[in-house]
Design a protein around this nucleic acid. Structure first.
Lengths: 228, 228, 228, 228
DNA sequence: TATGAATGAGACTTCATTCAT
DNA sequence: GATGAATGAAGTCTCATTCAT
């Protein structure tokens, strides 16, 4: 078992926060880090974290192992850098969605907005890989990610409560938990297919799923809109 | 990377279908295989397939590596035996559910029946492990499992169509796909928590989710029932 | 730099004291440990600790790396096992020398006894290697050995003081320090030559060196006894 | 294992003797070589030759690896340059000591002169490192150093014989060998302590040690002959 | 048949050395 | 000339698998 600890030992202090061994100053260096991260995402996606070898990742990135290790102290750090990126993107996405306008939107458009955003997120191999690998052996990922799903649930719950302040917090949490898990699963399934039409149909259905699930809890006054 | 191919090398032909090197005739042998399989499931569950070592599995099973290799030609075969078990259970479960009475049931009780059955399935470490590991690195599992999800969708679709023959097949497939993926995800999430009350609440919510999603497609005549 | 820490992680508790990963129960296992230790001593002696590779050691021991790692958790542990052995031998030797008869002996015979014992000790590659390697990078050897030289000095000092109680302790310490360092160096030099006659001459000279150095501090009353 | 052969590859012929890739004509270059050599000595002293990395040396010298390789063809060349320096110093020291006045000196002052000179030599990290590293893995240092100890013995023997021509050459050699080895060891031990008073005491004792050892062989007039 | 010691391919990682800038 | 990013050979260690007992 490879321990995925936040590696720490001999690295410049200011680089620690990024998990990188060396903060690439040059454009070339940054490009290389990108390339490695993308290559790693591709490899992790294909064969999983444990099966991926550092040589394979380096080769796929068009670099040598040594080069890889110039930026990442160890294999785990590569994954952690991906986690970091993923978390950043998720937070950015939330910030973009969490606006007054969103809350004001009718349920379906709001859900469409959310589902679209999450889909866009998971279209990125890096995020997809982090999300999926995390499922396998959560014990060994000692990182920020631990709480990310919970945060996602909290975020969604807060949206729900803003829409309908009458809902109890526990209620919102429960609904959100279901929405987050189910939509993530279906979105991932949708992204797995190469048939674009099918993919769109699935995406559409996720929205239906969530709308029909949440509608009863939203605005009892206004009439629901059920057009598929 | 360990390739998870259907191992083939030197084994009696008639044993191949079971993935076992040797069909244990003796009761002691069968018990040992069970123990190993259970131990492996526990270990895979905890640290993942790749991180699990044959020694660890053997130790947890109270056996020696040598003994393990007496029954399984290689590590992959252990997983494949688990897949086999899983598939058997799934098929048995389907057979139990796929009865005239089930089709006649109102939507919610039928869904309750299904969700309960799947939950019971995933309560078994072996099945949970097979299902989850499969997600992580699908490319390396060249096995029966590949099609199992599709079969699950087909099965569910057939239930739907039996309930409402007016629905187009494609429609049923799409609805089923969404139901299968989303319910699996939430059931797994439910099983992950130790809080039994929370688990029950989640299970309840999965049913709500599916009912509210499928209801519009089911009974054109009667009025929907929306009580949580 | 290779850190030579007392490795610890996954090993049976009762093996920890010996530094071995597994306490070889079988005769075969014990022989193998012996062989590995001897091979390692030879290799360390020839090319030094850092330059020695685990493969080289294993090959010289007629074993495989894997076998080596079955007994020793890491490369450092091999050296530490050698240290342990060395310390044991040193202590045994001291115990054998530290008897009333020894103290009663005239100076030269006593020194002869000591020098002979130390020479016999250093004839063993294991002890020689531990002693010599220790010189190079004392920082990285975090072991019992740290204090061994000091203990040797203390031991010798105690012998001196027993012989002549009028000597101040500090005086004894100082004399011992000189004797220990100088005799070790010359003994080592003697052992380095293949010319047996030369070796004997050198050994003889060490005794002369120590006798002439210590004589003035020994018998204040009687006239020195110079018979060889 | 890094082979410490006299590197040879692409370097101007006339530079070979100095072990340098390029004879730095500029003052800046010479300074840099000095800095690198001092840095290397410090690093070798602390963690040993093998554990020292070229990057660490360069960093300690305030230079870059590239710069280091501008002056030294490989890591071994750095050590060899140090050996060269050491040999030069030793020879210079000998030249300074090997004068008529020295021979005329009474034994103790002469020994004091010698011990002081050697101590001053070993105070230099470069010389200390060369001397000590040489002990650890003599086989891999294929250099001038091989014979240096022998030369030291010869030199000392010649001093002895000049003082007392009656002594047989073999006798002188033997006495010198003992003196050289033992004094080196004690001087090194003295330099290892930070306690200055203790250091002085030890130095004083080395002189006592050598004087008492050699005295019997020195007296041309008196009856002192202590034939072994 | 059961055991677990032995094997060695292969993974991760370091670091001497090169070379483009 | 100086720099430090890039390279990849080589070292340490693990673990699936075999085989003697």
């Amino acid at each position: 078992m490879t321990k995925l600890s936040h590696s720490s030992s001999p690295q410049p202090l200011d680089a620690q926060s990024s998990g990188l061994r060396r903060q690439p100053k040059q454009r070339r260096g940054k490009e290389r880090v990108e390339k490695i991260l993308d290559a790693a995402a591709a490899v992790f996606d294909e064969i999983g974290y444990e099966s991926a070898t550092t040589h394979l990742i380096a080769a796929k990135a068009g670099a040598s192992v040594g080069s890889l290790y110039q930026f990442f102290p160890d294999k785990a750090a590569i994954f952690q850098a991906m986690e970091l990126r993923h978390v950043e993107r998720v937070k950015t996405m939330w910030a973009e969605v969490d606006t007054p306008e969103t809350i004001q939107l009718p349920l379906r458009p709001m859900i469409h907005k959310l589902v679209t955003a999450v889909t866009k997120l998971f279209e990125q191999p890096v995020s997809r890989v982090v999300f999926v690998q995390f499922y396998i052996a959560r014990e060994i990922f000692q990182s920020i990610d631990d709480s990310l799903t919970q945060e996602a649930i909290n975020f969604t719950a807060s949206l729900l409560q803003q829409r309908n302040p009458k809902l109890a917090e526990a209620q919102c949490q429960l609904l959100s938990e279901v929405c987050v898990h189910s939509s993530n699963a279906v979105i991932l399934a949708a992204l797995r297919t190469d048939d674009l039409q099918h993919r769109q149909q699935l995406t559409q259905q996720i929205e239906n799923l969530l709308v029909s699930y949440l509608e009863p809890y939203m605005e009892p006054c206004s009439e629901a809109t059920h057009e598929t």
